[in-house]
C-alpha cells in the first residue's frame, strides 16, 4: 500500500474553488442555453414544415451519435474558422456544451410536449387561443413540469460531462486538481479529492431530484 499524504488538500482549495466555479458556470450556461435551444429544436422537430423537421432531426441525431470528446475537439477546431480568430478553450467549451446538450434537452422536451393530452390543445383552441399562445401558455408549462426530473437528471449528467474539457485543456475543476497534483507531486491525492467532490455534488443532487419527482407529478 502506498503512502498517502492528504495535507496537499489544504493548499489546493483556492485552485479547486476557481476550477469548480468554471465547472458550475459551464454547467449553468449550457443548461439554460441548452434548454432554450433544445425547446426550439423540439418545436422544429414537431413542426408540420417537413424540411424544418428534417434539419432539426438530423442535427439532433448527429449530436447524439458522436462521442462528446470528439464533438469538443470538432468545435475547438472549427470555431476559429467561423469567427476568423482563435478562441480560448473556455469559450469554446461553453459554445460546444450548449450546442451539444441542446440535442439531448430537445429529445426530453419533445417527449414532454408529446405527453400533454390532446384534450388540452383542443380546449385551448376552443377558448380562442392561437397556435403560439397554446404552445406558450398551455403546452410548454405542462411539458416542463412533466419533464422536470428528467431535465434535472440530464443536468447532473452534463455536470459530470464537463470534466471532458480536459481534452482541450480548459481550466475546470479536474484540470485544477491535475495542476495542483503535478505541482505538489501528489497526483493521487488530488484525483481522490476531485472524485469525492464530484460524487458529493452529484449524489446529493440526484437525491434531491428523487424527492422532487414525488412532489411534482401531475395528478390526473
Amino acid at each position: 500500500m502506498g503512502e498517502f499524504d492528504f495535507s496537499v488538500w489544504q493548499p489546493s482549495l483556492p485552485f479547486i474553488r476557481d476550477g469548480l466555479l468554471f465547472t458550475l458556470r459551464l454547467t449553468l450556461v449550457a443548461m439554460s442555453g441548452g434548454i432554450v435551444i433544445g425547446t426550439l429544436l423540439a418545436l422544429a422537430r414537431l413542426s408540420p414544415i417537413v424540411p424544418l423537421a428534417r434539419v432539426a432531426g438530423a442535427y439532433v441525431d448527429l449530436m447524439r451519435s458522436i462521442p462528446l470528446v470528439l464533438v469538443i475537439l470538432w468545435f475547438f477546431l472549427v470555431i476559429p474558422f467561423i469567427t476568423g480568430s482563435p478562441v480560448g478553450a473556455e469559450t469554446s467549451a461553453i459554445i460546444t456544451f450548449t450546442a451539444f446538450e441542446a440535442a439531448f434537452y430537445c429529445e426530453i422536451m419533445r417527449s414532454g410536449i408529446q405527453s400533454v393530452p390532446r384534450g388540452q390543445v383542443n380546449a385551448a383552441f376552443a377558448l380562442g387561443l392561437g397556435q403560439a399562445q397554446t404552445m406558450i401558455h398551455v403546452i410548454l408549462p405542462q411539458a416542463v413540469r412533466n419533464m422536470l426530473p428528467v431535465l434535472l437528471t440530464q443536468t447532473i449528467v452534463l455536470f459530470q460531462d464537463t470534466s471532458l474539457v480536459y481534452a482541450i485543456g480548459a481550466k475546470d475543476m479536474l484540470k485544477a486538481a491535475d495542476v495542483v497534483g503535478k505541482n505538489y507531486n501528489r497526483p493521487v491525492e488530488m484525483i481522490v479529492l476531485s472524485a469525492l467532490i464530484y460524487f458529493t455534488i452529484c449524489f446529493s443532487l440526484s437525491l434531491a431530484v428523487k424527492q422532487l419527482q414525488k412532489r411534482v407529478a401531475i395528478i390526473r
Binding site: 500500500m1 502506498g2 470534466s163 471532458l164 479536474l174 484525483i191 481522490v192 449524489f203 440526484s206
Partner: peptide
C-alpha cells in the same frame, strides 16, 4: 450510485493512478 455519480474520466484516473496504490 457509486459508478453513476463520478464522471467517467475521473473514474479512468481513479483506476489508472489511484487503484494500484491500494
Amino acid at each position: 450510485e457509486l459508478f453513476r455519480n463520478i464522471p467517467l474520466l475521473v473514474q479512468m484516473f481513479l483506476w489508472f493512478f489511484v487503484a494500484p496504490e491500494f
